[in-house]
């Protein structure tokens, strides 16, 4: 087991290095930060001096090596846009994204599994069919459109919920939270629905189809034959066995909730790392883009690692020798 974990960590490190290399090779196609950093009165001499200072004249491999050398010492450089240390900016922005992702994830999981089980058990019922049809909206509408529709309905027309921002936040020693104020909680509702809707419908459809399959298996029939109550059959025996694919998908989707919060954050002006990344791309803020991409890849690699370990815990067949072959 330990060797397995070590090997996975080693593989992960290589993935990270490659991601960084690819990212740095692409930055020069995003554009040139100099014109954004200097005003329109800048002279050619200013441009040259700043390019030299920032090391933009060096080949991207050299830039990457310098970035790595600094990054392992915990220094991610200075944002070109804000003139502040990147690590500090990321720390400031991370709570907003993580809280949003957590609420969306909980919404997606609870409603996804609940509705999935419901539609599987009542597969021919009117309600189940209605939910299945409606869920197509969640899968097919683009996120920004859902966000704009929700804003239009709940902010502009009804005036119930705020259309932008995080509301009042409370600072708990470097971690700003919106969970402790009414306006912070209100501000979470629309963005978390927008962000979680796709995942919710995905989980729901997955749970439903897995559940339908499991309900046809012999051991479920035997369980019923033994006279167990429906509740026990559905939740103790059937649901538990549908969980392996659900965990895989949920794990990966949790990563994408955080990584692709970009669009939701832009629509709702949510001050998280996704909005920061969009600003960084527009400004060609290379240190921020680099640090963000590395952070996101660390997260994806980490989540995959955890998911692999969870398999082993959920599915006894994967324990022991077979885990090594996975």
């Amino acid at each position: 087991m330990l060797a397995y974990i070590l090997r996975r960590i080693f593989q992960s490190a290589i993935v990270l290095l490659v991601v960084g290399l690819v990212a740095f090779s692409l930055f020069r196609f995003v554009g040139d930060p100099i014109d954004n950093m200097l005003g329109q009165e800048r002279t050619q001499a200013d441009v040259e001096r700043l390019r030299e200072t920032l090391g933009l004249n060096e080949p991207f491999v050299v830039q990457y090596a310098k970035f790595l050398g600094q990054a392992v010492q915990g220094n991610f450089g200075m944002s070109y846009r804000q003139g502040r240390p990147v690590a500090e900016i990321l720390m400031e922005r991370a709570p907003a994204t993580l809280e949003l992702a957590a609420v969306s994830g909980v919404l997606a999981l609870s409603f996804g599994i609940g509705l999935g089980v419901f539609t599987a058990i009542r597969r021919d019922g009117f309600a189940a069919n209605a939910i299945m049809t409606l869920s197509l909206i969640g899968v097919s509408l683009p996120t920004f459109l859902i966000g704009i529709l929700l804003i239009y309905l709940f902010s502009v027309e009804l005036g119930w919920l705020p259309s932008f921002g995080r509301g009042e936040v409370v600072d708990l020693g470097g971690w700003t939270t919106g969970f402790l104020t009414p306006s912070g909680l209100q501000a979470l509702i629309l963005p978390s629905i927008t962000l979680g809707l796709y995942q919710m419908t995905l989980i729901m459809r997955l749970v439903r189809s897995e559940m339908l399959e499991v309900l046809r298996t012999d051991y479920i029939r035997f369980a019923r034959a033994r006279g167990l109550r429906d509740r026990a059959v559905h939740f103790r025996h059937a649901l538990k066995n549908t969980m392996v694919p659900v965990i895989t998908v949920t794990g990966l989707q949790l990563g994408s909730i955080i990584a692709f919060a970009i669009i939701t954050e832009t629509v709702f002006q949510w001050p998280g790392v996704g909005l920061l990344f969009i600003n960084a791309i527009q400004f060609v803020d290379i240190p921020v883009m680099a640090a963000y991409l590395m952070l996101i890849s660390v997260m994806f690699v980490g989540i995959n690692l955890i998911v692999d370990l969870l398999y082993v815990m959920v599915d006894p067949r994967l324990r022991g020798d077979s885990a090594r072959g996975h």
């Binding site: 704009i148 804003i151 902010s155 502009v156 705020p162 259309s163 932008f164 832009t266 629509v267 002006q269």
Partner: peptide, 14 residues
């Protein structure tokens, strides 16, 4: 940043 959200914030009185 988003123009539609900015207008919505004005329309909703925020």
């Amino acid at each position: 940043q988003n123009a539609a959200t900015r207008v919505a914030a004005l329309l909703s009185g925020e």
